[in-house]
Design a protein around this nucleic acid. Sequence first.
DNA 1: AAACCATACAACCGCTTCCAA
DNA 2: GTTGGAAGCGGTTGTATGGTT
Length: 274
Amino acid sequence: MGRQPCCDKIGLKKGPWTTEEDKKLINFILNNGQCCWRAVPKLAGLLRCGKSCRLRWTNYLRPDLKRGLLSESEEKVVIDLHSQLGNRWSKIAANLPGRTDNEIKNHWNTHIKKKLRKMGIDPLTHKPLPSEEQLSHQSQHHQAPSAYSDLSTAVILHCPLDGPEAFCTDEVPLMEPHEIIVPCTPSATPCSSSSRSSSSKTKRTTWSSSSSYSNSSVKAEEIQIPSMEWPESVYLWGTDDFMGWDFISHDGEGKLSSTDLFNQNQEQWKCELF
DNA sequence: AAACCATACAACCGCTTCCAA
DNA sequence: GTTGGAAGCGGTTGTATGGTT
């Protein structure tokens, strides 16, 4: 008995999302929050699989996403964390508020990899790439380039940050696995890199401002939404679309629900947008 | 102006992990 | 302890866009 597909693929739309679909999804999530993604497309009136909806939301529509290229400091963080965590993009993204794993992964593959290679650093090992001379020498001695064969004597580059292309890879620590501690922010957000609460369904690391509310178990009181930018597609809708949104709700005790927090921020978003 | 190529990034796919039954 | 469902992750692909010839 095979496993059920994640979604009924028949009749489901694939490919780029339209503005209309984006609107539907945003509307639905702002009204209902994030419940089970499988049900979202049906309830939101979308001909997409839940997975696709989740991806679209987390990677593109989430209002707290930063857009645009990663800053130099963000790149540095990515490089630093990559040296410790490898291709654990979601973990890396958890340390960069407003950035998604997909975004970081793409940026790594298209920009950072090249930069590091240009600087003579192996993006995989974060160690200096062997020069041609060294390569020929190695081939003579049939020695495989063992990047981590001798961590204790690993070369740590010193490259002063003297230009836009330069990274301080000397800040990339070479550490033992047990030494790896994902840095927390001063705001003392629960960024437990791998710790799991036994009472919570929270499975994975989240950055409080970037993805805490992506977890349905997170209480509204905990939600903090930073200053946000809507994606371009949302800009294009015009104000009428915003006016049509109706997600004002109270929980009966005068407390604001997560929807209300969105609503509060909606005003802020509007101010920023228009 | 057209064809071709390179780049960037959105989206998909398949696998893994986790949890509840 | 086992199984199935749901969500998440990372690798890969597809496509739009810009640059070059």
